[in-house]
């Protein structure tokens, strides 16, 4: 049937949620395997950890000992299989550089990344959606033109320059916020967070704002195009015909509909930000995992890079899954079919 791919009368959607999740997880395992082979082989080809790590006065014996201690004296396929075998047991290996378990390294830096990314996402949504709705509703008004100009500028200035600009304005000229680093942390559930104390929060603001700019621009655009599309739907006109308050029309009828694409794209963006906020983390010396990745590539710390990419892939898979589930919650048409 030529129509089977879209006509809703012809569609076949008898797959259960559990099946769906299992199938997605199955696919992701294959994805993870391919990913790990590529990263593993790529790191092997590009640089030799022993060359990078052995000192200038290292003897040949030192180099061999170092290679042995890293397991690099084995042929690559054996190294890979050993690595896989350990992963199955939950052991992601030990960093060449830090001599510590890779998972511990990643997880002790994860909270720093999470707090800045989530703050940025929250700000992005809280600012972007209202701006987008406003400009979608008032296409010809002056503030809309300002917003539109702002999002264009926000998109076109590279993240890196924005970061320096922020530092210059807020740290150097105004001296209201610190230029870099992470402030004091407060322990919650055994993990240190800096967003939960006033001094720590001052340190989070600039990196979070740096990430938030692109998010605000993106959310504004999504909300604006969503608004323009939804406002022309019959049900919006019918809702107006019912005589309901404008706040309800916007806050409920409009918002619920435009949230659907926003949730999907924000989900993807969340994954990207968590895994690859390297620029922001580097410029602000924010001790998160993006910086760890960059340092590890630079230092040829293969276990960290490989484990990192595997975890990042896993996270993308999970985020996509969660986004799909939220999508289903927001859109009853998907939930009940």
């Amino acid at each position: 049937m030529a129509e089977a791919d879209h006509g809703h009368r012809c569609g076949r959607t008898d797959e259960t949620m559990t099946n769906f999740i299992l199938r997605r997880l199955g696919q992701s395992i294959i994805l993870l395997l391919i990913m790990s082979v590529l990263v593993f082989a790529g790191m092997y080809v590009i640089s030799d950890p022993v060359a990078v790590m052995a000192g200038e006065d290292a003897t040949e014996a030192d180099r061999q000992a170092l290679a042995r201690s890293f397991g690099l004296d084995q042929p690559l396929p054996i190294q890979y299989l050993t690595f896989l075998g350990k992963i199955v047991q939950g052991d992601f290996g030990t960093s060449f550089v830090y001599g510590r378990p890779v998972l511990a390294l990643i997880f002790e830096r994860l909270p720093a990344t999470l707090e800045v990314v989530f703050l940025a996402i929250l700000v992005g949504l809280a600012v972007g959606i209202p701006l987008g709705i406003y400009s979608g509703l008032n296409r010809k008004k002056a503030p809309t033109k300002v917003i539109s100009f702002g999002t264009t500028v926000g998109y076109s200035i590279p993240n890196f320059w924005q970061a320096l600009l922020f530092i210059l304005v807020f740290a150097v000229w105004l001296r209201v916020l610190p230029a870099s680093g992470r402030g004091p942390t407060t322990e919650i559930f055994g993990v240190g967070w800096s967003v939960f104390n006033a001094e720590g929060l001052r340190y989070v603001i600039l990196p979070a704002a740096n990430l938030a700019v692109a998010l605000i621009c993106m959310q504004t655009r999504l909300a604006r195009s969503g608004t323009q599309e939804v406002m022309y739907q019959d049900y919006m006109m019918f809702a107006r015909a019912k005589g309901i308050a404008r706040s309800r029309l916007i806050g409920r009828h409009l918002l619920r509909n435009i949230l659907i694409p926003i949730v999907t794209i924000t989900g993807l963006e969340l994954g990207t930000l968590i895994a690859f906020s390297t620029v922001t983390e580097t410029v602000f010396s924010w001790p998160g995992i993006g910086k760890l990745l960059l340092d590890s590539i630079y230092r040829s710390d293969r276990p960290v890079v490989v484990a990192y990419m595997i975890l990042a892939t896993l996270m993308f898979v999970l985020i996509n899954l969660v986004a799909d589930i939220i999508y289903a919650i927001l859109d009853p048409r998907i939930r009940y079919s």
Binding site: L168, A171, A179, S180, G181, T282, V283
Partner: peptide, 18 residues
């Protein structure tokens, strides 16, 4: 002691009084 690998950010931190 803090580490600030980015050159620009490091000098900005000095100018900012950090």
């Amino acid at each position: 002691i803090r580490s600030v690998p980015n050159n620009g950010a490091r000098i900005a931190g000095l100018l900012a009084g950090d």
